[in-house]
Design a protein around this nucleic acid. Structure first.
Lengths: 339, 339
DNA sequence: AATTAGCACTCGAAAGAGGTGAGTGCTAAC
DNA sequence: GTTAGCACTCACCTCTTTCGAGTGCTAATT
């Protein structure tokens, strides 16, 4: 168990290191006004804290920096729930005061606001579509041989894809097919669409369509093949401002992960509801082991939810970020529920 | 006027520097088999070339590196039109052999192919929409108070936006309005849509709609307000691999420009048809003064055209890049014309 | 018994010194 | 006109030295 004094010292060290990114020495700590004891005492305590694994030295005679265990303890026990500064709150509400009517607009604005506010990289994962249903299926002919298929979901998401109509398919048949599908598939959850599409098609096979398989494959290809990348990233270059990343090799390996949307989406998706913090090697990707990732979830109507996250150095402003994410996720949830 | 020998030396230096990024000395040049004269002679010629501004030294006793004027001369006069290597040609055609039916698909594939092939950053600007016309306008109701407006262009582009239907507007009126607009506006070029929309609306004002202005503003907001970002970037992290950019400050200032889509779009848009090369300070943005930008245009049916570009260090593989861009722009043009 | 002053010690960072080698410019010989 | 020869330059490397901020330990103080 840590003594009260040890807690105080740990807190001061981490707070200070978050600000300066420099190892903290005993003298610097003793100058803090909330600290009443001498450097020598602090040195003893620091030695103990290091032995327990909460602190590290960069070299044998340097000041201390927090270890990952130290950060973990800090976020678990020392994070007094700081209230948002009025400026922060102001910025957030000014964004949400605007009349935003589109989902992507909210996300985009939130992403850039978050990264501007924090100087970290912000990542937002759109909601999972479990409960979204098909609203309308539509084919619009562009010419005799090309058309664009449009799929609208109950959440207002629009997916589209143009394709060439193969010779084997009679355009008229295609239209009939779409009509029938609309009749039967509207209201079906998107994730079941694939299965239902096949069902319905075999059902009505004989009646209308000559070459059902070709038509099906085309429709399917047009509508369901491409996994929509549901992820929004802002302030990637902010990482370049952090002193821990002024090494091109580090930046490169980090960027190569952030760039991979499917990987990032998976990471964010795997987090629980509420706030979650991954510090250094707690992250799934080794490339992110110099970073911390803080995630929060927002929700839409009908139990759908998405994730907002901030990626920064391990030395993040945890309390402020947590407060920001809380506020933002609240605002987003609010906005979406009012639609 | 440059002597034949000077031309040869200049060429060798630039070719070599492009490969190695190291200053080239007289001894190294004399070892090239096409060079028959001694280091001393070469030193004299190099001194002349430097005096004329084609070469530079990094310090008083270093080898020479090309100046921007040197590069300019090189691309203007020394670029023997190298044919594409069979591998390069193979990669390009393998991408275009796939059946690509959607515009964005072609662009996306091209962008990533270009950056993979060259290790530079590739940027593609979608075509200007001068001659694209409205194919269909559509409103799909999601609930009693929300709807998504969809606009399909003759080129297969789909623009969409969800919005809340304000109380002031009778949903039925909205539908009528859309029907009428469809009747009258299909075939109108997108860039005139704004004007024509207003015209038509005032025209039919009395007959159908009660609160025309609100409806108009909503429709306009839904469809025309947001400028679609028409720009695709690939391989940004490739810049990190170039030795001239292993300085975080440089990377940061460069990335901050590339990130601004509107700026990049403007730069690309301003280039002429055909191949164009901007070297170092010839670039519009000072942040890009360590870079060269090579642009080429591709065309769609009906005089629309777009731009493909590669951004790399000044020390780019000009001849290969020009050949690549030529081939790619040809392939793209071809593909689009066949649709 | 806990705290603190004092002091020797450690180590990185910065600054300086010397050596090396790849390069140059110039001059004189070919 | 070309080239060999040579003195010179300068970045880069390595090796020292110095400096200071920090430590750990011991002994004195409270």
């Amino acid at each position: 168990m840590l003594s009260k004094r040890q807690l105080l010292i740990l807190q001061v060290i981490i707070d200070e290191f978050i600000k300066t990114a420099q190892p903290i020495g005993s003298r610097a700590i003793s100058k803090k006004e909330e600290v009443t004891f001498s450097p020598a005492t602090i040195r003893n305590e620091m030695a103990d804290l290091e032995e327990m694994g909460f602190l590290e030295k960069t070299h044998s005679s340097s000041g201390r920096i927090p270890s990952e265990k130290g950060y973990r303890f800090y976020v678990d026990h020392l994070l007094n729930p700081v209230h948002l500064s009025t400026e922060d709150r102001h910025v957030i509400s000014s964004v949400f005061d605007r009349d935003m009517v589109e989902f992507e607009q909210v996300i985009q604005n939130s992403v850039s606001m978050l990264s501007d506010l924090t100087n970290y990289t912000s990542i937002i994962l759109g909601p999972e579509v479990y409960e979204t249903t098909l609203k309308q299926l539509q084919i619009i002919h562009l010419s005799t041989t090309t058309a664009v298929a449009i799929l609208v979901t109950s959440s207002g998401h629009v997916e589209h894809r143009s394709f060439t109509i193969p010779q084997a398919i009679n355009p008229h048949d295609l239209e009939k097919l779409v009509n029938i599908l609309n009749e039967r598939l509207v209201g079906v959850p998107i994730i079941h669409l694939d299965k239902r599409l096949k069902q319905e098609l075999t059902h009505i096979l004989d009646h209308y369509i000559q070459d059902i398989n070709t038509a099906f494959n085309y429709l399917k290809g047009a509508l369901l093949d491409q996994q929509p990348t549901n992820i929004y990233v802002g302030g990637i270059t902010n990482m370049l401002l952090q002193p821990e990343f002024n090494d091109v090799a580090k930046i490169h390996s980090l960027y190569s992960v952030i760039e991979k949307e499917d990987i990032m989406a998976n990471i964010l998706r795997s987090e629980d509801r509420g706030i979650h913090i991954s510090i250094g090697h707690e992250n799934q990707m080794i490339e992110m082991s110099d970073c911390s990732l803080i995630t929060a979830t927002y929700s839409l109507k009908g139990n759908q939810y998405g994730t907002i996250a901030l990626l920064g150095p391990k030395r993040m402003e945890y309390s402020r970020v947590v407060a920001l994410l809380n506020a933002l996720s609240g605002q987003m949830t609010n906005t979406f529920h009012n639609w």
